[in-house]
């Protein structure tokens, strides 16, 4: 079997994205010397860690050839869950967080099970469930904000360990765990194979259904993590929590070079995708770009980055083919 190149070792394949990232950083830094200060870099990383975390879960699904539009609503549900467990149910913080992660995994597994057992297209099912889950949030909270979260809990979103915000540490820990799962376990390899060629996967004895349900579970758990960190960061849970984060998560994965048809992409790409989004969002405000132009520029930069990346990869691919010949 052809060995699939992935992970950090394949970072050279992202040289296109890295170059673009360096160029925009230089431009921002030239316009505002405060851009590359420790405080601002930390702010960028803390902001992108939220959609980076859900981007990782979404990445598993996209690699497997699926996607989940419910993550935004799931962030909301899990934010509400963790808040209720701590306030109304008065459970200890660690238990509330654990139960919330389990709830996220359970909702994810439910999504995956319905999709794989009924054959309903993932796009349609998860799109429909988005409103179901959001509706449940409104029913449970009666549309009200939950505040008065315990002080110690807020540390997850606000405190630092050795100068680094806990949110960033969680993001990088998740990146490493995801890398290990994808590259060092049979399950991880199956995600790639089943995503790239489901039929071949089936004949080589992979249980595609099980793999997909597990991917949905992982996505659910990451959404629960993001919901928990967000709740701690904002010190309150609004019923709109996590709104439209599914698009951020998909953007992160796709900008990072994942193919929506499955089988192609890596964890390094997720980090780069998140960095591109975070740097652009922060940098445009740093250089004081007029508000309406920010939207235009953001879209254009993303398109340029991805086209450049595709172009670079195509170049690399042809060279490899020639070599093989």
């Amino acid at each position: 079997m052809k060995k699939v190149k992935m992970g950090w070792s394949g970072i050279s394949q992202y040289s296109g994205l890295v170059i673009i990232l360096v160029i925009i950083c230089i431009i921002f830094q030239a316009k505002n010397p405060l851009f590359l200060t420790f405080d601002n870099v930390i702010a960028i990383l803390r902001q992108l860690s939220i959609y980076g975390i859900v981007g990782i879960g979404m990445g598993f699904l996209i690699l497997n050839g699926y996607l989940d539009l419910t993550v935004g609503s799931m962030i909301g549900i899990c934010g509400v869950t963790v808040a209720y467990l701590m306030t109304a149910a008065n459970l200890p913080i660690w238990l509330s967080v654990l139960l919330t992660l389990a709830a996220g995994g359970a909702i994810g597994a439910f999504n995956g099970a319905v999709i794989t057992y009924t054959g309903i297209p993932a796009f349609i099912f998860t799109l429909a469930m988005t409103t179901v889950y959001r509706g449940i949030i409104y029913l449970v909270t009666d549309g009200k904000t939950i505040s008065n979260l315990p002080k110690a809990f807020l540390a997850i979103g606000r405190n630092n360990i050795m100068g680094i915000p806990i949110a960033i540490i969680i993001f990088f820990a998740t990146l490493i765990i995801a890398w290990v799962i994808l590259n060092r376990t049979t399950f991880g390899r199956s995600v790639y194979v089943a995503g790239g060629n489901p039929l071949a996967a089936k004949y080589s004895g992979i249980n595609n259904r099980k793999i997909t349900i597990l991917c949905y579970m992982i996505c659910g758990v990451t959404a629960a993590m993001a919901g928990t960190v967000l709740a701690a960061k904002l010190s309150a849970v609004q019923p709109t929590l996590g709104n439209s984060y599914e698009m951020e998560a998909i953007s992160v994965a796709v900008i990072g070079g994942m193919s929506l048809t499955g089988g192609v992409g890596s964890i390094a790409g997720i980090l780069l995708g998140a960095l591109v989004l975070g740097v652009i969002d922060n940098g445009m405000i740093m250089i004081g770009l007029a508000s309406y132009w920010q939207m235009v520029v953001k879209g254009i930069v993303i398109v340029i980055a991805v086209i450049f990346d595709i172009y670079k990869k195509k170049g690399a691919l042809t060279i490899r083919k020639i070599r093989r010949k």
Binding site: I50, K233, L241, I285, I287
Partner: peptide, 15 residues
Amino acid sequence: GVEGYSETVENALNA
């Protein structure tokens, strides 16, 4: 929502 506004304000204050 709130999360977006908090990021925008944080970025503006860093600038």
